[in-house]
Design a protein around this nucleic acid. Structure first.
Lengths: 204, 204, 204, 204
DNA sequence: CGTTAAGCGAGACGGTACGTCCTGTCTTCTA
DNA sequence: TAGAAGACAGGACGTACCGTCTCGCTTAACG
């Protein structure tokens, strides 16, 4: 089987790449993911369609990279230490603070529309879903893992607890409410999640 | 504003409706949601396209109703008491049992493809998403609320706990792992979730 | 082979028939023949579609009968002696007078649109074309045959001339200019046709 | 007013154009004009529908150009001197010969179906009708004008006769009999027309 | 320093599906 | 039991995009 020769990445047009990212994010924000078409991205970016198909395999792929790029830029802008979880020694307070910041971000429309679009596509498109998780979600979750490990060292979390599972007690409920709109999102809500997760719902 | 005259529902063809449901579910199972087209549903159901557009507004809408119908039939077949949560007095055991059953269901391809498709569409399409939650998800969640209330009566759960939030501690993590493939799903995993949720991750 | 039982014409609704004729003529006049649909005729006439399909075989058929009815009414209104050709003894004058009247009629939009539509359909649809000719065109032409026969009796036309062919010398050019727009139509033009036809174009 | 940008004609696919002409003519011949659909032409030509709509505005338009192309090819095949009218000095004989050839052509089904279809469409669709006349009919008629002018020079036709009108005396009757089926077509018939037209129907 | 081979903007192409419209049949309810 | 109403299977319409494919044009890197 003959595969088409891979394009020469060294000659790739940086200008086009940036224009495509910008056009893709703008269009998804304006008309939504399903109505965003490759043709429209190309037209808006002032780019031939082939230039898109040469470097990406699909609309979802373009958007994923555009979003990764956006996240990276935002991180860089925030001073190179992106979303590290504070470690004041008070686990409950630290988690509540981070979750409140996450609530704010989830509501920011600059991020909401494209990330919702990517999440939706990832639900149905396994390959993209896995990439989305690996490149965006999991790195974030690992920050919680690190913070929980630190808490285990100070005795605030039991040593036999699996941090990768434990973090889902407060992260997943928030994620589901946002993704599936199963309920409202607020500081109170995330604070409550942290309390329940730390101390359980059974009588102490 | 002029709206097209609503069709007369009393004259609707029951046979066509059933054929459309069957065709839609079959196609989504076979080729996936994005490649399922209204045209193909109509052809497979032996129905004119207009008959679909007369009663539904979109492919997603057809599939939602088809899936609701499927769930209802399944419930009826299961003897009119669909997915009630057992109440043996042992909350932890009851929850673990139900979650293990849920794990089995989530892996059953008969349900997996269409519900994944609907969930994905619901993420991006608010109107459909809300209907999906209201008609399918929330009723299920209310069963947990009821079981947790009963546990509060017997003192197995603290009285000041909000059951609607509490249930998310073990339901949402499972949901997210399934939807977004953020991790593997197993009986061990759900058992662990229940333990963590009941007793917290902090030292007791 | 079983044919569907012919409907009972005695119970036919006169009111519906008239309403259908009126609606068909009005629509053809307003939106043209190709955009006139059976559905629109039925809606405009306040009639079920089946009532049209019960009594006519096609849109063309409806329009043909509607037009015949219109012509008949017009004739009746004109005093029962519709379009007889005058016989003053002066053949040239008589023909010129009739052709001038025909010119006026061809330009009257009340007749123009539907008759143009019927003529067009007749070109392509042999069955309808023959009916159109037999019921509308040929009766008119026979009036010319009669007048030319009378002229043969008075010696104004040679006895060896075939009147059915002779009339085409002045009728067909006018018909073609109107139908196919191969040239302008005027009194001068028809007068000239009569002169050429009577005396030929060769030197006398 | 915004108009869609005109397509770039220099990049047009010659192969597709030819295939579309062939498919259109074949289909019209096989199933008749009304049952010929753009979809079927595209399928038969192995072409996307858009390729048809990009270059033509309607089915009628396609067929008109296909027919013009056919006529042109036929003319070229016939040795570049297509349908010139002979000039032997004997006007009557020349006209009879040409009309006999026309009779043969009108009966040839290769030409009959498409030209009948075009003529019909032209009756009802003014824009197309005018183009049909200008590009196909009138050029043919001008050949008669030329021949009649030559006859005026030799004194076989009176100098005061308008040749453009005179030719209709024998051409239009034939056209009408063919188009509207108002009568049979034969060599005898066309011979008679020429005689009547030249010498008139009045006694000499 | 001209050649050459890639990437590029542009957009025509063969296709697929869209959502609308109409056909001619069939069914239900009304007068 | 004819007729008004309109749902139905079917199928064409004209549009929008898909992903592929040429076109010239620009722009490096190489010979």
């Amino acid at each position: 089987m003959v595969s088409k020769p891979a394009p020469d990445a060294t000659r790739r047009s940086e200008k086009s790449r940036r224009a495509i990212y910008a056009a893709a994010l703008a269009l998804v924000g304006e008309v939504g993911y399903p109505k965003t078409t490759v043709e429209a991205i190309a037209a808006r970016a002032g780019v031939g369609k082939q230039t898109i198909y040469r470097w990406w395999s699909s609309k979802a792929d373009v958007l994923l990279e555009a979003f990764l790029d956006l996240a990276e830029q935002a991180a860089r802008a925030a001073g190179h230490a992106p979303d590290a979880i504070p470690d004041t020694g008070d686990l409950a307070a630290d988690l509540k603070a981070v979750l409140r910041a996450t609530v704010d971000e989830l509501v920011d429309p600059r991020f909401e529309v494209p990330s919702r679009a990517l999440a939706a596509e990832g639900v149905v498109n396994e390959q993209l879903g896995r990439e989305f998780v690996a490149k965006l979600l999991e790195p974030q979750l690992q920050l919680y893992v690190a913070r929980l490990r630190s808490a285990q060292d100070t005795g605030q979390v039991r040593a036999d607890v699996d941090p990768r599972i434990a973090l889902e007690l407060f992260v997943s409920p928030l994620a589901q409410r946002w993704l599936q709109r199963t309920g409202p999102i607020s500081y109170d809500y995330t604070d409550t999640l942290v309390d329940y997760a730390l101390y359980g719902i059974a009588p102490r």
